Amino acid sequence: MVKIVEVGLRDGLQNESTFIPTEIKVECIQGLIAAGLKHLEVTSFVHPKWIPSLRDADKLVTSLPRVHEVSYRALVPNRRGLERALAADIDEVAVFLSASETHNKKNINQSIADSLTSMQEVTALAISAKKKVRGYVSTVFGCPYEGKVSHRQVIEICERLLSYGVYEISLGDTIGVATPKQVKQMLRSLGEYVPMRTLAGHFHDTHGTALANSYVALEEGISTLDSSFGGLGGCPYAPGAAGNMATEDLIYMLEGNGVSTGVNLSNLCAVSVKLQEWLQKPLPSRVLHHYVAAAKR
Rank of each mutant, 00 (worst) to 15 (best):
R152L: 11
N213Q: 04
L225E: 11
H202F: 10
N213R: 09
T224V: 14
Y193L: 00
Q185G: 06
H207L: 15
K148W: 02
G221P: 13
K184M: 12
V149I: 04
Y237A: 07
K184N: 06
D205T: 02
G240D: 10
H207I: 13
F203W: 00
A217F: 13
G208K: 08
L190I: 11
G231K: 04
I175C: 03
Y215K: 14
V149E: 06
G234I: 00
H151V: 13
T174K: 00
L190W: 06
S189K: 06
S228V: 11
R188K: 12
L211N: 04
Q182H: 05
G234L: 05
K184F: 10
P236R: 06
E159M: 14
G147Y: 02
A178M: 10
Y164I: 07
L162D: 08
L232D: 03
L162W: 05
K148L: 08
G191V: 07
P239Y: 09
I175T: 10
G201I: 02
A200D: 06
T179V: 07
A238E: 08
A178T: 13
E159R: 14
G165S: 02
K181Y: 13
L190K: 09
V154E: 01
Y164W: 05
E156Y: 09
H202V: 06
I155R: 01
Y167M: 07
Q182V: 07
T209C: 12
A210S: 13
G147L: 01
S223F: 13
I175H: 02
G172N: 00
G240A: 14
A210H: 04
H202W: 03
L199F: 11
I169S: 11
G221S: 11
T198A: 15
K148Q: 00
Y193D: 02
G234S: 07
A238M: 12
P236W: 02
Q185N: 10
A212E: 12
I175W: 03
L199K: 02
E146L: 10
R197H: 11
F203D: 01
I155D: 01
Q182D: 08
Y215A: 15
I157F: 15
P236M: 08
G208I: 08
Y215G: 08
L171S: 06
A238G: 02
V166P: 10
A238K: 11
L199G: 13
G230A: 06
E220A: 15
G221H: 11
G231Y: 00
M196F: 10
V166S: 13
A238Y: 04
H207A: 11
V216D: 12
G165R: 00
E146W: 05
F229D: 05
S170Q: 01
Y193P: 01
V166N: 12
Y164H: 12
E156N: 15
L199W: 09
H207D: 09
T198C: 14
K181F: 09
P236N: 03
Y237W: 01
G208V: 05
L211G: 03
N213W: 07
L162E: 05
T198W: 00
L225H: 08
F203K: 05
G208F: 07
T198P: 02
R160C: 12
T209G: 04
I222D: 14
E146P: 12
F203P: 08
M186H: 10
K181M: 11
H202L: 05
L199T: 09
P195Q: 04
K184A: 14
D226N: 03
I157D: 13
S227Y: 08
K148N: 01
M196N: 03
E219Q: 15
S223G: 09
H204G: 06
A210G: 03
N213V: 03
